[in-house]
Structure formats: structure tokens, C-alpha cells
Computed example of a mutant assay.
Amino acid sequence: MTRSRLILAASAASAALAAVPGIATADATHACDPSPSVAAGQIPTYDDPYQAYSWEGQWRSATFTFPSHRTGACLAGTVFAPLDLSAGSPDARFGALRPAVVIGPGSGPGVEAMYQWSARDLAGHGYIAVTIDPQGVGHSRTFGNPACQVPPPSDPTQACPGVPFQQATNYVDAIQTGLDYLTSAYDPFAGSVDPNELGAAGHSLSARAVSYAQMVDHRIKAIVAWDNLASDLTGDAGSPSGGGVAGQLIGGEVPGSSDPITPTVPALGEASDGRGADEPTNTDPDLKKTAYEVWRHAGVPSMEVVFRGSTHSDWAQNNTTTSDTMLHNFEYYTRAWFDRFLLGDTTADQRLLAATVNGQPASSIFSTNWRSAAFLDGIDCENLVACVK
């Protein structure tokens, strides 16, 4: 199965991908030139189907291309929707319009196909969701429009906007481009998207990107940052890189730069169990809560969940080492967060603070090295282990 075909799946007793009978195949929608280009983020298995899981529900999807919000480069992605978009299906909480979420990949070898596990689950439970590759990544075009300016402008960094691909601004741009697409005429599900209830999620560099995008794009109403929520676009002590020079280089920024983030919308940070790369001896149990505390001090709802035994790469699905259980736990909190702050379902608090998660004691999911925490709806819990019920 390739990305150029509509992918259809349904829940089944087996976690294998299952065809849905009676659903017509739709062509991909191209708002810009989808011709392939050499992208630095391409990986050999990009076009391989990634395993779907029974807990993701029933969904459908179609690939698309759409012009970059910032440079005009042709970006590639996939849009997911419930099989049934009628009001009240698959959940009575949903009306004619659905909340929608844009999901960005991690940097380096990360591509949107690795994060469709979350998009499938969101769509299988009533949302519209988009996974999208930044400029120069996966099937997204390497150059913008115009490709390069000759002679170059007075600022050499703007001669070829978005080149090289490994820069934080491209990941912010991908999130904003996904938002543009969701409400465009090219989105086959645009008529079901609620433009007032849009969210964003992302892994690694895209986690930083969504942390930043919520400050500059007021269409975003809630975010989830997978390893990890950030208080600066260059990262901070709670980031896997630890922020500092390492984080700046990963994001393509000049070492010594800083781009502080102001919290504006509810934010969930999910973090891995390892130590920051630039401070490997720092064992402060509140280290992963660095950005969470910035949100909390600003009075904006936030939550930090550090998963026991997890590594930074666990949020990127692959066909060899991915843990179904780990992804299911990541998505449990992700969907509950969007249910609370996009769908407006206050009963989602019960899931966010539940003592049992996917049949496991929540206390067995939380890291014993780093504290998880919650600040929402009158709850101010500095150590989540003591607050789940």
C-alpha cells in the first residue's frame, strides 16, 4: 500500500490493518505540485504501511499536498476522519462540526507516517486529524517558491527560505500549514471541521514547534507536546537535548540564541525517562516540569506526564521495535487532553487523573525518576502519583 492511495481501516479483534467494505476510494488532493524531490528527511520505509491497532477505532484517510504557510514549498501530509461524520457518531458528544488536530513529526529521520498512530486514534474517536511533513522532509518539497533569490537579499539567511530543512521555523510552519489545509477547499472533510476548536501535537522538534506555535497562531486552542513541552523554541532543561547549545543546533538556531515562549493555551507535556543530554548528572526530580511550571505560573492549564522506562524515540512508530502498550498509553493522555480542551468535555479530568490507565495502575506508568504533575480545573498537583484516584 502506498501513500497515494486512500487508506481505510476498521477496528477488529486483531490489531492488524483491516479493509472496510463499502467505502469508496478517494484520490489524493493536490493544491500544489506533488512531484517528488530529494528530501533530507526521507527514509527507505516511508511508504510502508505502519501497523494499525484495534484501540484506534474506525477511520478513513487521504493523502494531500498543500503550499507552505511561510515559503510556498509544497508540503505533503495525510488527513484522517471518522468513517461516519454524521452528528453524534461515533460519540454523542460530537455535533456536525468536529475538533481537528495537526500533528508534526520529530526531526532527523522523523516523518509524518510515524505519527499516524495518534491521528488514526483521534479520527477513530470523532476528530479530524492531519499529519504533515515540514519542508525538506519526507515527500515535502525541498525548496520554496521562489526556490532561491538571485541575487540574494541583504539577509543571506533568506536567500533560500526553509533551506536547509533542519530548522525549527520549518516545523512551526508545518503546523500552521496543516491548520491552513484543514479549513481549505482542498480538505475533503473541511465541512466537518470546527475552525474554532483546532489543536496541535508534535514530537521532539515538533513538540517545541507546537509549544511556540500556540503563542503566534491564535487558531490553536490546545496542544500536546511529546517529549517535551518547551518554554523556549530552542528547548530548555526539560527537553531531551537539555536545551542550550545542543537544543539550538538541533533546531537550526545560532548557538547562544533564545526565543522564549509565552503560554496562551492549555498544554500537555509527555516526557521520556532519560536525562538531558547537556546535564546528564542533573537528577532534580522536577527537571521534566521546566516548561510545565512556566504554564502553571502563567495560570494556564497544564500537565506533565513522564512515562516510566520510555525513550525519546518511543513516540515514533516503526514496524520493528514499537510498543503497542507504550503508544496506547501516550494516546490515552493525548486524546483525554484534547477531549477536555477542544471538545470541552469536563469529564475528561477523570481520565487524566485516573488511578487505572488502559488496565494498568497509573502509578506503574509514571517515572520513578522524575515527577509528573497537573494544573487544571482547580487541581494543583506537584506530584501526580499522589493525586490519581
Rank of each mutant, 00 (worst) to 15 (best):
I7E: 15
A13P: 08
A13V: 10
A13D: 12
V20L: 08
I23G: 08
I23W: 08
D27S: 15
A28N: 13
V38Q: 12
A39M: 09
I43L: 07
T45K: 11
T45W: 12
Y50V: 09
Q51Y: 07
Q51I: 10
S54T: 13
S61W: 01
F64S: 00
F66E: 09
F66T: 07
F66S: 08
R70P: 12
R70Y: 12
T71L: 05
A76Y: 08
G77C: 05
T78C: 05
F80C: 03
L83Y: 01
L83S: 05
P90F: 13
A96F: 08
A96Q: 15
L97R: 15
L97P: 03
A100E: 02
A100F: 04
G104R: 00
S107A: 14
A113R: 13
M114W: 06
Q116C: 03
W117K: 03
W117C: 02
W117L: 01
S118M: 15
D121E: 12
L122D: 03
G124F: 02
G124P: 08
H125Y: 06
G126H: 07
V130A: 01
I132E: 05
D133H: 09
P134W: 10
T142R: 15
A147T: 11
D155G: 11
D155F: 10
T157D: 13
Q158S: 15
C160V: 05
P164A: 09
T169H: 02
N170L: 07
V172N: 00
A174R: 06
T177R: 04
G178Y: 03
G178V: 00
Y186V: 07
A190H: 10
A190G: 01
E197C: 11
G202P: 03
H203M: 07
A207I: 00
A209M: 08
M215D: 10
H218S: 15
A222K: 04
V224F: 00
N228S: 13
A230C: 10
D232W: 04
T234D: 06
D236L: 00
A237V: 09
S239C: 06
G243Y: 02
G243D: 04
G244T: 09
G251Y: 00
P255V: 01
S258E: 12
D259W: 07
P266Q: 02
S272D: 15
E279Q: 14
E279R: 14
T283N: 15
D284N: 13
P285Q: 01
K289S: 11
K289P: 01
A291L: 02
E293Q: 15
V294L: 02
H297M: 11
H297K: 15
A298H: 08
G299R: 07
P301T: 07
V306M: 06
G309W: 05
H312F: 04
S313Q: 12
S313K: 00
W315T: 13
Q317E: 14
Q317I: 02
T320L: 15
T321H: 03
T322Y: 10
T322S: 15
S323R: 07
D324T: 11
E331Q: 10
W337S: 04
F338W: 06
F341C: 00
A354Q: 08
Q360I: 11
I365M: 11
W370H: 04
A374E: 08
C381W: 01
C381N: 07
E382V: 12
L384K: 06
V385C: 02
A386M: 14
